[in-house]
C-alpha cells in the first residue's frame, strides 16, 4: 500500500501531503525534511526509487514539482510511477495544463482529485474520465449550493429593505 503521498517543490516547499498510515505531526515534519533532503539532491538520470527506513519512496519530477509516494518493500515500483503519472494527467486535464501555481491556490482541489484516485493507500479508479466526471459532478453540487445561498440572501435582503 501507499503510506503517504508528498508533493514537494524544487525549493523544498510542501505543496500537498496525504498520510494513509498514522504519523504524528512531529514525525510528519521529520519525514518531509528527511525525504526532501534525499530526493531533491538526486541527479536527473538516476532511478526514481529511494530506499528509506525499510520502505521505498518512488518519486518523479514534473517541471518544478516532485511527486513522491512511499510504498512497502514488496510493492511494484514501476506501477507507482504509472499511478503518479495518472494523477498528473488528471490534474492536467482538470486545470488545463496544470502548473505549480494552480496547485498552490487550489490545493483543496488537488486533494479532492487525489481522494477520487486513492483511498486507504490503494488505487480506486483506473479511468481518468470517471475521475473527471465525479469531480465535475461534485463541483457543480457546490456551485448550485452557492447560487442558492446567494439567491436566498438576495431575497432576504429585498424582503428586509
Amino acid at each position: 500500500m501507499i503510506h503517504f503521498v508528498l508533493l514537494i517543490s524544487r525549493q523544498g516547499k510542501v505543496r500537498l501531503t496525504k498520510w494513509y498510515s498514522p504519523y504524528s505531526q512531529k514525525e510528519r515534519t521529520k519525514v518531509i525534511r528527511e525525504l526532501s533532503g534525499v530526493i531533491l539532491t538526486r541527479g536527473p538520470k538516476l532511478c526514481n526509487f529511494v530506499e528509506w527506513r525499510g520502505y521505498k519512496v518512488v518519486y518523479k519530477r514534473y517541471a518544478s514539482l516532485y511527486f513522491c509516494m512511499c510504498i512497502d518493500q514488496e510493492d511494484n515500483e514501476l506501477e507507482i510511477l504509472e499511478i503518479i503519472h495518472h494523477y498528473v494527467e488528471i490534474l492536467d486535464r482538470y486545470f488545463g495544463s496544470v502548473c505549480e501555481l494552480d496547485l498552490i491556490f487550489n490545493f483543496h482541489k488537488a486533494y479532492y482529485i487525489l481522494d477520487e484516485l486513492l483511498i486507504a493507500g490503494e488505487l480506486q479508479e483506473p479511468s481518468k474520465k470517471t475521475v473527471a466526471r465525479l469531480i465535475a459532478a461534485q463541483d457543480s453540487l457546490v456551485e448550485t449550493a452557492k447560487e442558492e445561498a446567494s439567491s436566498i440572501s438576495n431575497i432576504i435582503a429585498q424582503a428586509t429593505k
Binding site: T17, H108, Y112, D115, Q138, L141, V142, A145
Partner: peptide
Amino acid sequence: FPEKRIGYLGLML
C-alpha cells in the same frame, strides 16, 4: 454538501 466536503477534507488532513 459544500460544508461537508471541506469538513471531511480538513478531518483527513
